[in-house]
C-alpha cells in the first residue's frame, strides 16, 4: 500500500513530538525522509562547485548516503511545520554535505557556483535561505487573518505556490502550476492548453529558470 502524503507524515511527526512520543516521531520522520530519498540523491547529482565542477562520480553515492543519514538526524528536533520548509531543509543538508565532501579537493574554491551571496561557506546556510526568510515574513504578515491550516495538498504546497505565483509570465506560470500541483505530464498540459508539446517544454524550462531566480534572490 502506498504511504501517506508527505504533509500528513510531517503533521504526525509533530503530533508525536508534542505527546513526548519520541520513538514514534522518529519512525514517522524516517518514513517521511524515505519518501525523499530520491530527492536527496538527485540533489547530490546536481550539485556543482564554482566553475561547474560536480562531485567526483565515485563520491556522489557516498555523499547521498551521508546526506540521507544527516536528514534522518535532523528529525531529532525539526521545528518547521510546512512541507515546503522541510524540503528546503533537505536542500540545506544536501548542499552542506556535498560541500563537506568537496572541501578537501576543492579547498581553493571558496564558494559554490550557484550559492553565491546566499551561501555561507563555513556555516549551515542554504541556497534558499533568503527566499525562506522572505516567506517567513509573508507568513507573519498574513498570520492574523489566516484560518487554521487545512489538511490537503494545496495547503502543503504553499511555499512552492508562493514562489510560482511570483512568476510574471502568465504562460510560464500556468505550465508550472499544472506541473507542480496537478502533476500533469507534457502531453496532458499540451492538450489542456491547446499548445504543442514543444511549447510546453519551452514554457516549463523558462518558467523553471524564472522560479530559480525568484527563490534564490537575496533578501530585500
Amino acid at each position: 500500500m502506498a504511504d501517506e502524503p508527505e504533509h500528513l507524515l510531517l503533521r504526525r511527526y509533530h503530533a508525536a513530538r508534542a505527546q513526548g512520543n519520541d520513538p514514534e516521531a522518529a519512525r514517522v520522520w524516517e518514513r517521511l525522509t524515505l519518501r525523499n530519498f530520491d530527492r536527496i540523491k538527485g540533489l547530490c547529482a546536481t550539485f556543482r562547485f564554482a566553475g561547474g565542477t560536480g562531485l567526483p562520480p565515485h563520491e556522489t553515492g557516498s555523499a547521498a548516503t551521508e546526506a540521507y543519514l544527516r536528514a534522518i538526524a535532523m528529525g531529532a528536533a525539526f521545528e518547521a511545520r510546512e512541507i515546503g520548509q522541510y524540503r528546503a531543509a533537505l536542500v540545506r543538508v544536501v548542499w552542506n554535505t556535498c560541500h563537506d565532501y568537496g572541501r578537501k579537493e576543492l579547498r581553493h574554491e571558496k564558494r559554490s557556483r550557484r550559492l553565491d551571496t546566499t551561501w555561507d561557506d563555513d556555516g549551515e546556510g542554504g541556497p534558499y535561505d533568503a527566499a525562506l526568510a522572505r516567506y517567513d515574513e509573508h507568513l507573519r504578515a498574513e498570520a492574523e487573518e489566516a484560518a487554521e491550516a487545512e489538511a490537503g495538498r494545496e495547503e502543503a504546497e504553499r511555499l512552492a505556490r508562493w514562489g510560482i505565483a511570483q512568476v510574471r509570465n502568465d504562460n510560464y506560470r500556468t505550465v508550472l502550476e499544472l506541473t507542480w500541483f496537478e502533476k500533469l505530464d507534457a502531453d496532458a498540459i499540451a492538450g489542456r492548453l491547446g499548445i504543442s508539446v514543444d511549447n510546453v517544454y519551452q514554457r516549463r524550462r523558462r518558467g523553471m529558470i524564472e522560479l530559480e531566480k525568484i527563490l534564490r534572490a537575496p533578501r530585500d
Binding site: 504511504d3 560536480g54 524540503r87 502533476k183 523553471m208 530559480e212 527563490l215
Partner: peptide
C-alpha cells in the same frame, strides 16, 4: 550545468511522487 541547476530547482520544491509499492520497496 544549466540543466543540472534547473533540475535542482525542480527537486528542491517538487512534491514527492506517489510511489507505488514496488518503488517504495526499492527505496
Amino acid at each position: 550545468d544549466a540543466l543540472a541547476g534547473e533540475i535542482a530547482t525542480f527537486l528542491a520544491f517538487a512534491p514527492a511522487p506517489d510511489y507505488d509499492d514496488a518503488a517504495l520497496e526499492a527505496i
